[in-house]
Computed example of a mutant assay.
Amino acid sequence: MTAVTVSMAAEVYPSKPIRLVVPFAAGSGTDAVARLTARALGDSLHQPVLVDNRPGANGSIAAEVVAKAPPDGYTLFMTTNTTHSANPSLMKHLRYDPVKDFTPVSRMGNLPFMLVVSPSLPVKSLREFIDYAKVHPGMSYGSGNSTGIVAGATLSRMAGLNMLHVPYKSTPPAMTDVIGGQIQVMFVDFAAGIANVKAGKLHALGVTTAQRSELLPELPPLASMPELKGFDITSWNGVFAPAGTPAPIIDRLNRELVTVAGNKQYAAQFHGFGFEPFGSTPAELGKFVTAELQKWAQLVRDAGIQAE
Results as ranks from 00 to 15, higher is better:
1 M>D: 02
7 S>H: 14
10 A>L: 05
10 A>R: 07
11 E>S: 11
11 E>I: 07
14 P>Y: 02
15 S>K: 12
17 P>H: 11
17 P>L: 10
17 P>Y: 11
20 L>E: 01
21 V>R: 01
24 F>L: 13
25 A>N: 13
35 R>N: 10
37 T>L: 08
41 L>R: 05
41 L>Q: 06
43 D>M: 14
46 H>A: 14
48 P>H: 12
48 P>L: 11
50 L>M: 10
51 V>Q: 04
55 P>C: 01
60 S>R: 00
61 I>K: 07
62 A>G: 02
64 E>G: 04
65 V>F: 14
74 Y>K: 04
76 L>Y: 01
77 F>R: 00
79 T>C: 06
82 T>R: 07
87 N>H: 09
87 N>D: 06
93 H>M: 12
93 H>T: 08
99 V>M: 00
101 D>A: 03
102 F>R: 01
102 F>D: 03
104 P>M: 10
105 V>N: 02
115 L>D: 09
123 V>I: 04
123 V>N: 10
123 V>H: 03
124 K>E: 14
125 S>I: 11
127 R>V: 12
129 F>L: 08
129 F>C: 03
142 G>P: 09
146 S>Q: 03
149 I>E: 14
150 V>G: 10
150 V>Q: 09
154 T>N: 15
158 M>P: 07
158 M>L: 06
160 G>E: 04
162 N>G: 13
163 M>C: 04
164 L>G: 14
168 Y>Q: 06
170 S>N: 12
171 T>W: 10
173 P>H: 03
181 G>P: 00
182 Q>W: 12
182 Q>I: 14
189 D>E: 06
189 D>K: 09
191 A>Q: 09
191 A>C: 08
191 A>E: 11
195 A>M: 15
196 N>V: 03
197 V>M: 00
199 A>K: 03
200 G>Y: 07
201 K>I: 11
202 L>D: 02
204 A>G: 04
204 A>Y: 00
205 L>I: 04
211 Q>I: 12
212 R>K: 14
214 E>A: 15
216 L>T: 15
218 E>Q: 09
219 L>G: 08
222 L>C: 14
222 L>A: 07
224 S>T: 05
227 E>C: 04
229 K>F: 07
233 I>D: 08
234 T>Y: 15
237 N>M: 07
243 A>Y: 05
244 G>P: 07
244 G>M: 00
247 A>D: 05
250 I>H: 01
251 D>R: 06
252 R>T: 14
252 R>V: 10
254 N>W: 02
262 G>D: 11
264 K>F: 13
264 K>R: 15
266 Y>M: 09
267 A>Y: 10
271 H>G: 15
271 H>W: 10
277 P>G: 05
278 F>T: 06
284 E>C: 04
286 G>S: 06
291 A>P: 13
291 A>K: 14
292 E>A: 11
292 E>Q: 11
296 W>G: 04
297 A>D: 10
298 Q>T: 07
299 L>Q: 12
299 L>R: 10
300 V>W: 03
301 R>V: 06
306 Q>L: 10
308 E>Q: 14
